[in-house]
Design a protein around this nucleic acid. Structure first.
Lengths: 162, 162
DNA sequence: TGGGATATCATGGGGCACTATGGGCGTCAA
DNA sequence: TTGACGCCCATAGTGCCCCATGATATCCCA
């Protein structure tokens, strides 16, 4: 399968390196990504990592903003900002740069989270917090607890009922 | 028959492997699943396990959302981040990874529960508790009203033992 | 109808290959 | 020189392939 799935935590070694999970590396190869790009998530303390198509996704996102406003430019600067190119060494490890650490809060351990077409890098603690929140939101959606919002999503949400 | 039916408990061996019940394996084959997709249930300490169509359904559902809104992100976070592929070894066994154990509480034994188009994996004790509660709810439903809530409470109280 | 032969299953374990992880060393630039 | 970085190797741990065993179930034939 060629999708990034599941999540793992690995330790950063004394030199600041982390092994990218073997399964993820396999996906990278299967998808033919010759290079990995890491971009700062706009609204989360995480990095999005993927191939060149990841850049397209961000450009679409930014294109949603009014080009006459400062916002679009800020967004672009923020997430493209520094060199966000990740190089896999020959043992399949990447180096956790300050660019990554600053944005994610990563220090000793890294959580890799599959997201289908790309994956994310998190500080494990923050990931747990965010994950719990995301689950709570989904549960709410499913149970249609919030009368107003639920209405809007009702038709769609009936999906997962078995 | 090509539905997952009934339930079984099997032991995990010293290497962390469990045999998937032969009957389930037959269904897997009949349905042409080449890989198994496992997903952490949103509100239960269980894993849903099925073919790739299970994942496809989620992805199609996500595609209906605005990809840059939080709902889409939450959904992807759930079905990709909390999902994994299970590999059947050639003896029809799967390995109980920490990924599964953490969510389900599984340690020494696994309960396989048929659910029609997919099946579930539980820690046997928790399954028993949950089953009792489900039966209590059904009973309450059949008896028709909230007038019998007292009864339901009684049932729950008797069977909750965590 | 009973009893053995056969197939299938659950379970255990050996062993190889690969993965994660640590560390040595040279190179290049500040 | 020092520290960041790339390249290389060593080692323990894990996953996965393959085979062996005993228990059950199924079938066939006397």
């Amino acid at each position: 399968m060629d999708r990034f799935l599941s999540n793992t935590v690995s330790r950063i070694d004394a030199k600041g390196r982390v092994s990218v999970p073997a399964h993820f590396r396999a996906v990278v190869q299967k998808r033919g990504y010759s290079e990995l790009y890491a971009l700062r998530c706009l609204d989360l303390p995480a990095m999005d990592v993927g191939g060149l198509d990841l850049l397209d996704r961000y450009e679409q996102r930014i294109a949603q903003e009014d080009p006459f406003l400062q916002t679009a430019d800020d967004m672009s600067f923020f997430c493209h900002g520094d060199g966000a190119f990740l190089k896999l060494d020959q043992d399949g490890r990447i180096t956790m740069t300050d660019f990554i650490r600053e944005h994610t809060g990563i220090s000793a351990e890294v959580a890799f989270v599959g997201r289908g077409n790309f994956f994310q890098i998190w500080e494990p603690g923050r990931l747990a917090t965010y994950g719990a929140q995301a689950r709570a939101r989904l549960l709410q959606l499913r149970q249609g607890t919030k009368a107003h919002e639920a209405k809007a999503h009702e038709a769609k949400a009936g999906e997962r009922s078995e």
